[in-house]
């Protein structure tokens, strides 16, 4: 009986979980291996005596060194971080305030406004960049970080607003009413009572917004042109692929280093983040 149970657990639990983990992590593993693989193994593996596709016997940091010294990678990192951070901040601020208003204030058209904000989120970026390009040209902010800082909120604000609206709705409104009777004005009730309770929701929205801006590709590709203005995703793909020449080692090193900040952000907030996603208000 017990043996049977163990067998079942392997088949129904560990095996699916294992394959899931492998499928999920293999690209990252490949990225790491490619980063440290010497050029000889990368481009002419058949000439190499000890070649194995999943491993390298001569690890090297040449690609990382090249990436950091021969390209503008550190500038791209800085650009990406600045843009993602400021865009997230703007979107969170607007999203929290709009989400609160839609969840709590009873005003005419509140429902329609909420839906309208959501609909803007549904407009595909691949269409929206055309009118946005026009606007960016008119305001002469093309090829500056502002081109992205001001356009990312077009999809981040609806996203944050909806996430926060749901979160605010889950907080009992008596808390706020009680605060208002206790002597707080509406904004004080929001700042002292509602926002601290909504921290998990705000963090979730923030992490999501940060990740979306960090990985964003199409706006960054269209609105930025000079190499020193580029973000990591665009910089790496446009500067390390020359025609049909792929600098695989440096490309993978860029991708690897580029994903580290997001990984740090996630692991740092993971506890809050999970609480935020399940919408739990600890009472």
């Amino acid at each position: 009986m017990i043996e049977g149970a163990r067998w079942k657990k392997w088949v129904w639990f560990y095996l699916p979980l294992g394959s899931f983990i492998v499928a999920l992590l293999f690209p990252f593993y490949w990225m790491v291996v490619t980063t440290v693989r010497p050029d000889g193994e990368l481009y002419r593996p058949w000439n190499h005596p000890l070649y194995s596709p999943f491993w390298t016997s001569h690890p090297t940091l040449d690609h990382v060194r090249n990436l950091l010294t021969e390209t503008l990678f550190s500038t791209w990192m800085w650009n990406t971080m600045l843009i993602a951070f400021v865009a997230t901040l703007i979107s969170l601020f607007c999203g929290v305030i709009a989400g609160y208003a839609l969840a709590r204030l009873t005003f005419r058209w509140a429902g329609i406004l909420g839906t309208a904000i959501f609909v803007t989120y549904l407009v595909p970026q691949t269409l929206l960049f055309i009118p946005l390009a026009e606007i960016i040209r008119d305001y002469h902010i093309g090829d500056t970080p502002w081109a992205l800082i001001l356009t990312y909120p077009t999809f981040l604000i609806p996203f944050c607003t909806w996430l926060m609206m749901g979160y605010f709705k889950a907080i009992p409104k008596e808390l706020e009413e009680c605060a208002r009777i206790d002597g707080a004005a509406r904004w004080q009730a929001m700042v002292y009572i509602i926002l601290p309770i909504a921290v998990p929701g705000i963090l979730s929205a923030g992490i999501f917004a940060f990740t979306l801006s960090w990985n964003e590709f199409i706006y960054a590709l269209v609105f930025l042109s000079s190499p020193e203005q580029k973000t990591v995703p665009v910089g790496v793909t446009s500067e390390l692929i020359r025609g049909d020449v792929f600098f695989w080692g440096a490309l993978m090193a860029g991708a690897l280093i580029g994903s580290i900040p997001v990984a740090i952000v996630y692991s740092f907030f993971v506890e809050h983040y999970v609480a935020g996603m399940t919408g739990s208000v600890k009472g």
Partner: peptide, 9 residues
Amino acid sequence: FQNYALYPH
């Protein structure tokens, strides 16, 4: 209030 409405934080 019926649900006490204590500030959880």
